[in-house]
Design a protein around this nucleic acid. Structure first.
Lengths: 160, 160
DNA sequence: TTTAGTGCAAACACTTTGCAAAGTA
DNA sequence: TACTTTGCAAAGTGTTTGCACTAAA
């Protein structure tokens, strides 16, 4: 049931190239890497390799099912092997640290969402933002007041 | 304990302008809006208003505590009122629909993360990707094989 | 009047595209 | 050989910045 990465490419009618191997290796080595980081890593071995190739390759590898990506805050796509054990991420807002957890940590949530809403959770994509234990001690979070909302009116006064 | 939005601005040493009111209104009206969408909405009332003003205003309003943002997939920042009831999001990968849930739906997870990892979850930012009930019936998810990883070697053959 | 806020245009970071040359099968 | 993939350069998105002008307080 297990095939090699190059067979996976060939089987889907794509060609095996050094570029693709390098990108896949980079994804394997650096976990949670952005396209940018993957590009930098790949360049260490192959200076001539182009950014667009990295993007195209990542898209292909994902399509073929060799890699997947997650969103870890802002706009950063981060890629990792599809074969890697599924895990969820805790991202600390303050120090930016990423904590990996086994999916079992959220199994009760997954079960509940399925039972109550018929929603099938993509565990590999689950990211929880918050504050890690270390930062909690340091920062005393600012308390928001909770002001009322405007009543739309002044606009016509100056619009044009 | 509740103040008006313009007082919130003044209190923090900022000025009250029509632009800021319009942006805040847009955020209020369209829930989960991207800067782009907010800009479009605002332009309907004030053609002259500039995109950069929208970005600057959103940043300010967030800083002052009137609005907050969430990441709902790719790189899309979506803004909503800070006063709005906290809620978590279920995003369907297939149809793109967004389901809002009360934070209580994940309270057990929040408790567990706190107890086990000392992690304080930012519930307002929690987004769960997956497949909604409707799409589950339709799409028969493709099963990934799980090919092996390359063994780094061919690279030197052609790098330069 | 003073100083913060705005519009404009240009700069940015990141990602995508068209096309001819190079390389896989 | 035939046809996919790459490198290159140029074009797109979405977001940010500097600066002179405008307007809130």
């Amino acid at each position: 049931m297990s095939q090699t990465w190059d067979d996976a490419l060939r089987a889907s009618g794509h060609r095996v190239t050094p570029q693709r191997q390098l990108v896949l290796e980079a994804v394997t080595r650096l976990e949670h890497a952005t396209p940018e980081e993957i590009y930098a890593e790949v360049r260490r071995k192959a200076v001539g390799l182009n950014v667009s190739t990295v993007y195209r390759t990542l898209e292909l590898l994902e399509q073929v099912g060799l890699v997947t990506h997650t969103h870890l805050g802002h706009g950063a796509h981060r890629y990792h092997l599809a074969t890697e054990a599924q895990h969820i991420h805790l991202v600390c807002r303050h120090c930016g640290s990423i904590i990996e957890l086994a999916p079992t940590a959220v199994s009760s949530l997954v079960t509940a969402l399925d039972r109550d809403y018929g929603f099938e959770t993509d565990v590999g994509h689950l990211t929880v933002f918050g504050t890690c234990a270390r930062c909690r001690g340091v920062a005393a979070g600012p308390a928001h007041a909770g002001p009322a909302v405007p009543e739309s009116a002044a606009a016509d006064r100056w619009s044009r």
